[in-house]
Nucleic acid binder design. Structure first.
Lengths: 234, 234
DNA sequence: AAAGTTTTAGGACATATGTCCTTCCCAACA
DNA sequence: TGTTGGGAAGGACATATGTCCTAAAACTTT
């Protein structure tokens, strides 16, 4: 993580995503722009809540570890999105871990200033309401999806989400083998079972197993299998 | 459903749950008090959004039916809680079906007035933020719970939620057999499998099967099995 | 009461998934 | 070049759950 001292870029982001209208002017001096590299953690489950983050560039992975030590993916996020909103409203520690999937830029606001200047600012409140209700929808459909469909379908959806980041043509259609254990945890299954599922998808010609990575051979077919639902996206 | 013309009772509820501070005075004349009986539907998935409801008495069951026709329980609610908040913020149709489990009293506000008088009322916005983030937490832990634990554990949790409504001593510790199919759908499993699980719980002495109902024999044991998590509560 | 009908529990079998362990491959190193 | 260690894939078996069907029970109708 590195701070980016680059007022023009910050202004640029503020304009692109129309962030200014939702903040009051007193808050503007307290915005900081940060950069995270692929794999870096923005925050970890249980961390005390400090900043509200606005994701303005890149892709985030949100996940959670259960008391038993199993890891569950919750979602992927792309701009514009917010991290720490729920925690800000409830004043609680972070409930999830947030990791950068690609190079990521985030605008951070310390909760001190947010409480001081923003807690009665109607546009901000409305913005948060809007963002959080959307998160609720996503969570809600994710719940149904997980309960209703087997791992194969979930993995298809996951593959589509993780392998086709437009901003990263290199990895297009490929999933590095070293991420398979992660992937299994993220989908909510075991590594062993994921392998079984990959074998099966392989036999169906939807993916191909190569040394070091898995390649999507039939994107349409996977999408079909996943019921056209990108449950892990956004 | 019946309207209750009873200004004192309404006032009483407004006070008990400290509702007045979150509403502005212009809204007060537009509050209506409704009563629903056991089994009645307050709203059905897909219904256009009309009212925001405040649950002030009784217990609600929230569920959702998938495209494939399977029914999933989402939560139970007790006072004070809100129905239609997400829909109000997003301006969308109802995403879930809401059913009265016991006799229920709800205060309804038509969205017309809410938009007109409440959309910039900070205390209301904050109240909604608070309620919705709590719902998010519940949904979030529900997701993990369902993904991590087998039906037996979920059913134990369900039994504890549904069989011990303090306001309904008659049904204490009992689940009517006629509700078993419902229960299965609600937990996200098949009727067949639920029966298997009941057999098993029976052999363990946690519940007993009688003609017409299932009786909880060992509440503590069930709670233990459910990891002390009342996932379907609230 | 007898016959038919509906409801409810459970049998049989298939599929989905988890756990544990073994084998194989490759890289690092002696 | 042989050895060793680690990681990745897959075999074997157990458990969880779904689907379809049957048997038993309860309820209706004649």
């Amino acid at each position: 993580m590195r701070e980016i001292h680059h007022p023009e870029l910050l202004q640029n982001y503020l304009q692109t995503f129309e962030i200014k209208p939702i903040l009051n002017d007193e808050l503007l001096p307290y915005l900081t722009l940060y950069r995270y590299d692929h794999g870096e953690l923005i925050c970890t489950q249980g961390d005390p809540y400090n900043h509200l983050y606005l994701l303005v560039k890149g892709k985030l992975k949100i996940f959670n570890t259960s008391p038993e030590g199993r890891t569950l993916i919750l979602s992927f996020k792309t701009p514009l999105d917010v991290v720490g909103d729920i925690e800000y409203v409830q004043g609680t520690d972070f409930i999830n871990t947030v990791e950068a999937v690609s190079e990521v830029h985030m605008i951070a606001i310390h909760h001190r200033w947010l409480k001081k200047y923003g807690s009665d600012h109607t546009p901000l409140l409305k913005f948060l309401l809007n963002v959080i209700t959307k998160k609720f929808y996503v969570k809600s459909s994710s719940l149904s999806f997980n309960l209703l469909y087997p791992v194969e379908v979930r993995f298809a959806s996951y593959l589509l989400s993780v392998c086709f980041d437009e901003s990263d043509a290199l990895y297009s259609g490929k999933l590095s083998t070293s991420h398979l254990i992660d992937a299994a945890n993220l989908i909510g299954t075991s590594y062993r079972h994921l392998n079984r599922v990959i074998q099966h998808l392989s036999r169906e010609g939807l993916v191909e197993r190569h040394k070091g990575f898995i390649e999507v051979k039939n994107r349409e077919g996977l999408s079909e299998l996943a019921n056209h639902r990108n449950i892990y996206e956004k």
